Amino acid sequence: MFDIYARSFLEATRFTPNTRPGSKAQERPEVTAQKRQRHLLLWQRRPYWA
C-alpha cells in the first residue's frame, strides 16, 4: 500500500513550475522536422502578386 502512495507522490511532484520542460522540448523530433519543412516550403514559394 505504501508503494502505491509513494509512486503517486513521485508522479505528482515530478515537475514544479520552475523545472517543467517547455513545450518545445517535449515535442517529438519528427514533428518538429515536419513543421520546419512546411515553413520552408511556404517561404520558398513566390508571392501571390508576382
Rank of each mutant, 00 (worst) to 15 (best):
P17E: 00
T16C: 08
R45F: 01
F2G: 12
W43V: 10
F2S: 13
R46M: 07
Q37W: 12
T19S: 12
E30T: 01
L41I: 10
Q26R: 15
N18F: 13
E30N: 01
R46V: 02
Q34S: 04
A25Q: 12
A50F: 07
V31F: 03
P47E: 04
I4Q: 09
Q26M: 15
M1N: 04
P47G: 09
F9P: 11
A50K: 05
A12W: 09
G22L: 15
T16E: 06
S8G: 13
I4W: 03
S8M: 14
Q44A: 11
S8P: 08
P21Y: 10
F15Q: 05
L42I: 10
V31T: 01
P47A: 10
K35G: 00
L10H: 14
Q44R: 07
F15A: 04
A50S: 07
R7P: 12
S23E: 06
L40E: 08
W49R: 01
Y48P: 02
A12K: 07
R7W: 14
W49V: 10
P47Y: 01
K24L: 12
R14Q: 12
Q44P: 00
P47K: 01
R28Y: 04
R46P: 08
L42V: 10
R38E: 10
V31D: 04
R45I: 07
W49H: 08
P47I: 06
R14V: 05
R14H: 13
D3K: 07
L41G: 10
R28K: 05
V31Y: 02
T19V: 03
R46N: 05
P21K: 08
S23L: 13
T16R: 10
F9G: 13
R46Q: 09
K35H: 05
I4N: 09
V31G: 00
R20Y: 06
F2P: 07
L41M: 09
P17Y: 02
Q26H: 11
R38W: 09
L42R: 14
A33G: 00
A6N: 15
A6R: 15
K35C: 00
T13D: 06
E11Y: 14
F15C: 03
I4P: 02
P29M: 00
G22D: 12
Q44M: 09
E11A: 15
M1W: 03
T19K: 03
R7S: 15
R20D: 01
F2L: 09
Q26P: 02
R38A: 10
D3G: 05
H39T: 04
A50N: 06
W49G: 03
F9Y: 14
K35M: 08
